[in-house]
C-alpha cells in the first residue's frame, strides 16, 4: 500500500542568537491511509517542529526547512506555492493543537469560526453552512449545539473547546489529521472523553492520524505504529505492540521504564541519567550516547543510521550491529 504521507530526510533549522541550530536532522517517517501513527519524544525533541514542517507552518524567519521531501499522496508539499498550501491545509490535512485555550479566537463565536473553516474550502449558502456546523458539533458530542453555536470560547470548558477544535479540523473530512498533544492540557477524565471521541470519529470517517504526544499511555491506547524521536532524530520505529513488548533502542527502554505504572508495583523507577542535550550543543556520534548505559567508543564517533531490523521495525543504534561488536572487542582488549 502506498503511504499517504511520506517524509524523507527532513532538515529544519532555526536561526537563533547563538547561531543556527538544527531542530530536525534528517527525519524520515510515513503514515499510511487510515493509519494512526504516534510520534513520541520529550520536550525539545522536534516532534512539534515535524508537524509544523508538514503543514509548512514553521515561522520563517527564524525557521527554515533546509532539505528533504514531504510527499503527500505522491506530491511534494515543499514544492507547493502558498495558495496551493492554503488549499491543502484544512481540506486534506488538518491539525488540532495542544492549547484549546489559545487556538480559538476569543472575539468570534464558535459557530462563526467553524463556518469560516468550512467556507475556506466549500461553496455553501449561509443556511447550508450553519446546518453543516451544527451537524459537526453534534458529531463531536457537544450538548445543545444550537445554543453553543452562538457562544464564545470563554464560555466553554477546556474539553468543550477541544471538541470544537476537533469539529473544525474534521469539517472538511481531511485525509490526514495531525493531533499535536491533543489532550495534554486536559484533566484525565476529560482526556478519556476526547480520546474516545477521536477513536469513534476515526472509525466513522477513516482518516489517518499523526498523533504527537509524550504520554506513552495515550500511545498504547491509540496508535498502530510508533515513531520515537530524540534530539531531532528518529531513533526507533515499530508497531505498537512490538515497541512496548521489546523496545530496541536504549532510550525507548529507558523512557518506558521511567513511567510509574498503576497496574504494577515497583519500588524504584528506572531513570535515564542526565538531561536532554540542548540543540546548540549536540553530542557527537549518537546523540544519546552520553546518557546511554550501553555506549561504547563507536557511539561517540559515528552517527548510527536508522536501519530496518525486520517485522516493520527500524532502529538507529549501534547495538547489535557488526561494527558495535568489533568496537566492543577493541575496548575490551584494551
Amino acid at each position: 500500500m502506498k503511504p499517504l504521507l511520506e517524509i524523507e530526510n527532513l532538515v529544519t533549522t532555526f536561526d537563533t542568537e547563538d547561531g543556527c541550530v538544527t531542530a530536525l536532522d534528517g527525519v524520515s517517517l510515513s503514515v499510511g491511509q487510515g493509519e494512526t501513527v504516534a510520534l513520541v519524544g520529550e520536550s525539545g525533541c522536534g516532534k512539534s517542529v515535524t508537524s509544523l514542517s508538514i503543514l509548512r507552518l514553521v515561522p520563517s524567519p527564524p525557521g527554515k526547512v533546509e532539505a528533504g521531501r514531504i510527499l503527500f499522496e505522491g506530491e511534494d508539499l515543499l514544492a507547493k506555492s502558498e495558495p496551493q498550501m492554503r488549499e491543502i491545509r484544512g481540506r486534506d490535512i488538518a491539525m488540532i493543537f495542544q492549547e484549546p485555550m489559545t487556538s480559538l479566537n476569543p472575539v468570534f463565536t464558535c459557530g462563526s469560526q467553524l463556518i469560516e473553516a468550512i467556507g475556506q474550502h466549500q461553496r455553501l449558502t449561509a443556511a447550508q453552512a450553519k446546518e453543516k456546523v451544527l451537524e459537526m458539533l453534534r458529531l463531536v458530542g457537544i450538548p445543545l449545539p444550537d445554543q453553543r453555536f452562538d457562544e464564545y470560547p470563554h464560555q466553554m470548558s477546556g474539553g468543550m473547546r477541544q471538541r470544537v477544535m476537533i469539529g473544525m479540523a474534521l469539517c472538511c473530512a481531511p485525509k490526514l489529521l495531525i493531533a499535536d498533544e491533543p489532550t495534554t492540557a486536559l484533566d484525565v477524565t476529560i482526556q478519556a472523553q476526547i480520546l474516545d471521541l477521536l477513536i469513534k470519529l476515526k472509525k466513522k470517517m477513516g482518516m489517518a492520524i499523526l498523533l504527537i504526544t509524550h504520554d506513552m499511555g495515550v500511545v498504547a491506547e491509540m496508535a498502530e505504529r510508533v515513531v520515537v524521536m530524540y534530539a531531532g532524530k528518529v531513533i526507533e520505529e515499530a508497531p505498537v505492540r512490538e515497541l512496548f513488548r521489546a523496545p530496541a533502542h536504549p532510550y525507548t527502554r529507558g523512557l518506558l521504564d521511567s513511567i510509574p505504572r498503576l497496574d504494577v508495583r515497583e519500588d524504584q523507577l528506572g531513570t535515564i541519567p542526565g538531561n536532554v542535550p540542548s540543540l546548540g550543543s549536540m553530542p557527537s556520534g549518537c546523540r544519546f550516547h552520553p546518557r546511554c548505559p550501553h555506549a561504547c567508543g563507536l557511539c561517540a564517533e559515528r552517527v548510527p543510521e536508522l536501519r530496518e531490523t525486520g517485522g516493520g521495525r527500524k532502529v538507529a543504534c549501534w547495538l547489535g550491529t557488526p561494527g558495535m561488536a568489533v568496537a566492543g572487542e577493541r575496548s575490551a582488549s584494551r
Binding site: 478519556a192 499511555g217 498503576l262
Partner: peptide, 14 residues
C-alpha cells in the same frame, strides 16, 4: 473508579 479507569495504561496488550 472512573478516575482510575480514565488513565491510559502504557501497555497495548491490556
Amino acid at each position: 473508579e472512573a478516575l482510575l479507569s480514565a488513565i491510559p495504561v502504557p501497555d497495548p496488550e491490556i
